[in-house]
Amino acid sequence: MHGHHTHHDHAHGHDHGTRAFAAVTLVNLAYTAIEAGYGFATGSLALLTDALHNLGDVLGLALAWAAAVLARRPASERHTYGWRRATLLSPLANALLLVGFSGALGWEAVRRIDAPPEIPALPVVVVAALGIVVNLGAAWLVRGGDAHDLNRRGAFLHLMADAAVSAAAVAAGLGMWWLGWAWLDPAVALLIGAVVAWSAFGLLRESLAATMDAVPRGIDPVQVRAFLAAQPGVDAVHHVHIWSLGAGEIALTAHVVRHCDTGHDAFIAQTVGELGQRFRITHPTLQVEHGDGCRDATAH
C-alpha cells in the first residue's frame, strides 16, 4: 500500500526563476562585452582578465538558466520525475567553474606580483564600479529561495563574488590612481581569488552531496525515522530514504510495519501531510506492511 503527498503547483515559481535567470544572463553578457571593449580600447589587461572571468560566470549563469528551463519539462514514461535534477547538476558545474577561475586568477596574480604591469587606473575604476551595480542588481533578481535552492544559490554566489571582485578592482584602481601602487592589482586579485575559492568549495561539497542522493541539508533523518516510528499503530520502520528531486523538492520512501488491518488510508493521508509540514518533504511514499516477516528488515 503506497501513499503520495499531492504536491503544489510550482509553475509560477519556475516561470519566475526562468525569467530571472534569462535577465541576469543577458545583462551580465552585455556587461562582459562592454568591459572587454574597454579593455581592448585602453590596453588594460586587468579589464580583459576580469572580462574573461565574467564570461565564465555568464556560462555558469547560462547553465543555471538552462537547468531552470529543463526543470519545467513534464514527466514522461522514461523520465517519470521529469527533469528536476537538472537543477542539481547545474550548481555542480557552476562550482567547478568558480574553482577553476579562482585558481587561474590566483596564478596570474602571483605571476604579476614581482613585475606588475602599468594599468590605466581611471577606466578600471569606472568600469569596475559599473560591475558592482550590475552584479548586485542581478543578485537581487535571483535572491528568492537561495536557502534551499542550490541552483539559485549557485547563481547568487556567482553574482556576489563578482560584485566583490568589482569592489576590489575599484579599490585597487583608486590606489593605483592616487598612490601609484601598481602592485595593488595582483594583490587584490589574489585576495578575491581566495574568497571566491572558499565560497566555491562549499557549494561544490553541497552540490556533490545532492547529486549523490544525500539527505538534503536541514533535514535530520534520525528525526524523520523517529517521527514515523511514533505514529499510531506503527510497530517498526525500515528502508527509509530521503533525497532531493530538484530545487526545493524532497522525496522520501519508507516501509512502516502496522499489525492492524484497517485505517491504512487515513494513516497515510495524515502522516504524509505532517511530513510536508514538519520536514518540507513534498514527495513522500509510504509502504505499509504487516506480519512478523517484515520485522527483520530494520537494518536498511
Rank of each mutant, 00 (worst) to 15 (best):
I250V: 15
F156Q: 12
W181D: 08
V240P: 00
A168D: 03
L174A: 11
A247V: 04
A62R: 04
A226F: 01
A109H: 11
R72Q: 14
Q223D: 15
H12T: 13
A155M: 04
C260P: 00
A128N: 09
H255M: 04
C294L: 06
G82N: 14
L122E: 06
A210G: 04
S244R: 14
H53C: 04
V170A: 08
G137H: 05
L96R: 08
D57C: 06
L88K: 14
G173C: 11
V234R: 05
T25H: 03
N151R: 14
V188Q: 01
A147E: 15
V24W: 01
F227M: 04
D114E: 14
L52Y: 03
A115G: 05
W65Q: 09
L275K: 07
V133A: 15
A67S: 12
T298M: 07
V99H: 10
Y81R: 12
S199M: 11
A109R: 12
M212T: 09
F40K: 06
R295V: 10
L122V: 11
A95E: 11
L29R: 02
V288M: 07
L55D: 02
T32E: 03
F267P: 07
V196S: 08
E35V: 01
H79S: 12
A138W: 03
D185Y: 05
D235S: 15
N94H: 09
L136N: 05
